[in-house]
Structures are given as C-alpha cells and as structure tokens.
Design a protein around this nucleic acid. Sequence first.
DNA 1: CTGATTGCAAATGCTTTGCACGCCA
DNA 2: TGGCGTGCAAAGCATTTGCAATCAG
Lengths: 168, 168
Amino acid sequence: MRYMDPAIQERLNAHIKKKGLRNTPQRNVIVEEIFSKDEHFTADELWERVRKTNSGASRATVYRTISLLVEARLLHEIDLGEEVKTYDPNFLDRPAHNHLICVDCGKVLEFEDTHVELLNDCLSKRMGYTPVAQAIRIEASCDQLRIKKSCPNLIKARVEGKRLPRQR
Amino acid sequence: MRYMDPAIQERLNAHIKKKGLRNTPQRNVIVEEIFSKDEHFTADELWERVRKTNSGASRATVYRTISLLVEARLLHEIDLGEEVKTYDPNFLDRPAHNHLICVDCGKVLEFEDTHVELLNDCLSKRMGYTPVAQAIRIEASCDQLRIKKSCPNLIKARVEGKRLPRQR
DNA sequence: CTGATTGCAAATGCTTTGCACGCCA
DNA sequence: TGGCGTGCAAAGCATTTGCAATCAG
C-alpha cells in the first residue's frame, strides 16, 4: 500500500484549471484509487476497485476519468500484449521505464536501460528521425525456472489461480 | 506490387497439414491478398481489399484467416498505438524488425538495430530473464521537417487526405 | 446562474460465434 | 461419407455517448 504522491494532485489540479474543468468527489475517489497502488490495471479492474469504496461512482465516470488522466499525461496506456487496454500509474516516478513480461508466469516487471537511449541516438543518425517516446514490451523466460525447475512467481501465480500465459 | 514469397505458401501448407485443416479458395484469396503487398493493415482494410477481388469471401472468413495466420506465426499483430489492431506481413523477411512512427505525418518505418540485442543481453544479466521476443514502438519527429520546414511524406499525406497524428 | 459532471441506459464498433449448408479429402 | 470451412446474421464485449438531473464555482 502506497500513499498518493502530492505531485499527482498538483498536476491534476493544474490540468483541471487550465481546461476550465471542475473538482468532483467521484473523480477524486477514482484518482485516489488509481494512484494509491503502483499496480497496472484494466478499466474493468479499476471499476471493481472503485465499486468496493461504496462511493457511488459509476462505470462511465471511471472511463471518463481514465481518459482525463491519460490526456493530462498522469496515466499511460501500456502494451502488455493483452486484449484489453492496460494502464500504468507509475510514469510520474519513472518517466522512461518499459515492460518485461515473463512468458512462464505472466509477471510484469518494469525496467529502465541506457541501451534504449543509445537506440534512440542511433535511429536519429541513421534514419533522420528524433525519437520523442518509446513503448517497449519484452517477453522473456525466467532463468531461475529453467535452471532450478521452479520459480516463486509461478508457484504464487498457480496458488492464486491466475491465468498463465498461453504456451507456444 | 510484390509477388507472394513461396516460403509463405509452404509454411502455411505445413501448418494446415499439421492441424488437419483443409485448403479452400476463399482462404487462398485472402492469403494472397495479405502477402502480395508489404503494407500493414487492419482487419477492415483487408476486408475491403478482399471484397474488390470479387472472390465472394466473407468478412467472417477474413477474420478467421487472420487468426489462422497469426497462430501459424506468418502474420504478426503489431502495436502502432492505434485503436484498432494492425497486422504486419513482413516478419518472414525480417523476423526481428520493429517500428518507428513519425509523429508529424504518421508514416510507419520498419527498422532493425543491434542495440535491441544489446538491450536483451543486458536485461538477461541484470534481471535474470532471457528475452524471447520484443515489440518496440518508437514515436519520432522528422528532422527534415524541423530543419527545412517541409517533408515529402507530410505533403503526400495531406494530398491523400490521410488522418494526421493528433497534436500534443 | 452557467455549464461541467454525473448515472443510467442505449448505442457504438470491432470481433466472435451458432447454425445450416456446402465442399474438400 | 465425415467433418472442416463458409456465409449470414446474431451475439458479445469493451467502451462511448445522449440525455436529463445535479452540482461546483
């Protein structure tokens, strides 16, 4: 459990003011719910979490708030290779991070790496384009599982009954 | 205009045989349509192209054939940051390519770069995961446009009435 | 007061599916 | 002949939107 970074509230207020929007209790509950954890989520998962707060906020408002936050660049839509859209609330802390997905257990890890910048520079020189943003999804297999034949995440995922990645 | 690589047909036949499936004229028309160009496409764009062949293949069969080809790993779903799914028929030629999207005109360029392999090695050492696949989308601005105030792609895109990227 | 925001339900848009018929092997 | 593949229309599903009521500033 994590408390919401005050910088989020600040930036959101700035956005709201700039756009001539208003403050509402429903929106505040949803924003609080999003940024009180560092978990990735889908719209539906967020709606479930919001519902449990008994704040009365509706599904439509959840969707509208997500759009608002994405527009304000406080929340990012990320590509995890899933069918449904997934959102990531951690870009204020780590603006340049990307995602690694374990093909064995489905666990998502965030990473930052200087090779991404090197790649950007290289493309700039070779292709005549200057990168402004990148979205990298890396699917990888767990070394520990291959070597030791077991991996704590996989065991945990099975115990929790999570849907494991499709096998190839 | 490009002719379809015979290797595609071969691999598709192998997949069909292995799965106990059958050859049909509708499916052949759709496969031919996909691999006769190196263009990325959405299901709906493909359906339009197939319709013009007057082969009588239906929209449902277009969707079913796309699924079949993705499963056979002859076609890849790619992340261009669009709302609708986009498919790329060029992975047999260049299995490790990724995509750069011009934020000015929307043009999509394919690239391969050794830094991606370096990134993979690095993650392997640092995080204990061995990458098996990656999907990289880089958004970049056109240097020529910034320097010369004009870019042939942008002019072309405007003439053709293409929808330009949303401005930020 | 003004108009942004909300909840609800209906609408939307892409994709999948059930079914009966047809066709490949 | 068996059962895979097809077209059609209906269903599914996530997301968006119209509307009237409500509420913030």
